[in-house]
Computed example of a mutant assay.
Amino acid sequence: MRKSLLRMTLRQLQVFRAVCASRSYSRAAEAMSLTQPAVSLQIRQLEEQVGLPLFEYVGRKLYLTEAAESLLQASGDIFDRLDSLEMNLSSLQGSLRGELRLAAASSIQYVLPHLLAAFRQRFPEVSFHVEVASRAQIIQRLADNRDDLVLMGLVPADRALEFFPFLNNPIVAVAAPDHPLAGQQQLPLSRLESSTVLQREAGSGIRKACDEFLQLKRVHLQQTMQLGSTEALVQGAIAGLGVALVPGHAAAPYIRHGELVCLNVVELPLMRSWCAVHARGKRLSPVAEAFLGFLREERALIRRLAEPFEP
Rank of each mutant, 00 (worst) to 15 (best):
P37I: 10
A18C: 02
V126P: 09
F294C: 08
D147K: 11
G258E: 04
T196K: 11
G94H: 11
D147W: 02
V277H: 00
D178P: 01
E193Q: 15
E66P: 04
V111A: 09
A31H: 08
E212T: 05
D80S: 09
D148T: 09
I138Y: 03
R256D: 14
L189H: 03
K61G: 02
S273P: 00
Q93G: 15
S70K: 05
L64H: 04
G76R: 14
V174Y: 06
L52A: 13
S75L: 06
A136H: 12
V172Y: 05
G236P: 02
V243L: 12
L34H: 12
L41P: 00
Q199S: 03
M32D: 11
A173L: 09
F166Y: 15
A244T: 07
N145M: 07
R2D: 09
L10Y: 03
A38Q: 11
L82A: 07
C262F: 01
A157I: 04
L284Q: 11
P177C: 08
Q109W: 02
L216P: 00
G281A: 00
A182S: 11
T65D: 04
A136L: 10
D144A: 14
S190K: 10
Q140F: 04
L189Q: 12
L295S: 08
S33R: 10
A28G: 00
L116T: 05
S4C: 04
L295K: 04
L263G: 13
D147N: 13
L149R: 03
I238F: 08
V130R: 10
R2P: 13
L34D: 07
L284G: 07
A276Q: 05
T196P: 04
Q14P: 02
T230D: 14
Q42L: 15
Q223T: 03
G293E: 13
I302W: 13
A103I: 08
V219K: 01
V15A: 03
F128H: 09
F309A: 04
L64V: 06
L10M: 07
V219T: 12
V132A: 15
E131S: 12
G228P: 06
P188F: 11
Q185R: 14
R27Q: 13
V15K: 00
R303H: 01
E47P: 06
L64S: 00
V234T: 02
L62V: 15
T65S: 15
H257R: 08
L112S: 03
A21K: 08
R272T: 12
S91H: 10
D144T: 12
Y254P: 03
L151C: 09
N88P: 00
C210W: 06
G258D: 03
Q222H: 10
Q121M: 12
V132S: 15
L71I: 14
V287F: 09
G258L: 08
A279T: 10
V50H: 01
V39N: 01
L46D: 09
E99H: 03
L263C: 09
L71R: 07
P286I: 00
V15N: 04
M225F: 10
I78R: 04
G98P: 06
F128G: 03
L241D: 13
K61E: 15
L268F: 14
F55T: 05
Q12T: 11
F79N: 09
L34W: 12
E125F: 14
A202Y: 13
A160I: 00
V39P: 02
R256G: 06
